[in-house]
Amino acid sequence: MQMASTPTTGDRFRQLIRSLTGISLPPSKVQMIDQRLRRRVVEYGLPDTEAYLEKLLAGELPQDELPRVIDLITTNTTSFFRESEHFDFLTGHILPDRLAKARAEGRKRFKLWSAASSEGAEAFTAAMVLEEARRKGAGFDYAILGTDISARMLERATAAIYADEQLTTVPRDLVTRYFLRADDPSMAGKARIVPELRARTRFRHLNLMDKSYAVDRDVDVIFLRNVLIYFDATDKEQVVDRLAGHIAKGGYLLVGHAESMIVRHPLLRQVKPTIFQKC
Rank of each mutant, 00 (worst) to 15 (best):
L267C: 09
A151K: 07
R181V: 00
G256L: 09
L180F: 05
D71S: 08
A248E: 14
A199F: 12
V263N: 05
F276K: 01
Q277L: 08
R152W: 09
A102C: 13
L37G: 05
G137A: 03
E259P: 02
E119H: 14
D141P: 13
L253V: 04
A116G: 08
L53P: 02
P47G: 10
T201R: 03
F203R: 03
R98D: 10
Y252Q: 08
S118V: 00
P27C: 09
Q63R: 08
V69A: 04
I70R: 00
R177W: 05
E105C: 06
D183Q: 13
T274W: 03
E122W: 07
T168Q: 15
R204H: 01
P171L: 12
P171M: 11
R242A: 07
R152A: 14
A127I: 03
Y142A: 10
Q2D: 14
S260I: 02
S24M: 15
L197K: 01
T201P: 01
T91S: 14
R192P: 06
V227N: 04
A58D: 10
R181L: 05
H205C: 02
R38H: 14
E85S: 13
K236M: 00
R98M: 08
V263Y: 00
I193N: 07
L206A: 07
F223D: 11
T91Y: 09
T91R: 04
R181P: 06
V30N: 14
R134H: 12
V69L: 02
A100L: 05
H265Y: 08
D173S: 02
D241S: 15
F89N: 09
R82G: 13
A58S: 07
L25E: 02
I70E: 08
S150D: 07
V30T: 15
S117T: 15
L16W: 09
G189S: 10
T274F: 10
V215N: 12
E237L: 12
G250M: 06
A143H: 11
A121V: 05
P67S: 08
N207E: 03
F89E: 13
K211I: 04
P96M: 10
G189P: 11
A244Y: 07
L130H: 04
A102G: 08
V129N: 03
P27G: 04
V271P: 01
M1V: 14
L130E: 02
V175S: 10
R264M: 14
S118I: 03
K136S: 14
P26Q: 13
I23D: 06
F223E: 11
F87R: 06
E54C: 07
F231E: 02
T78N: 02
T21Q: 04
V271Y: 06
Y178D: 00
I94K: 10
V69H: 02
A4L: 15
D71E: 12
T8D: 12
I33T: 01
M32G: 00
R172Y: 03
G120V: 10
I161Q: 10
L53T: 02
A163Y: 10
F124G: 02
I70W: 03
K249W: 11
V194S: 09
T74R: 03
L56H: 05
Y162E: 00
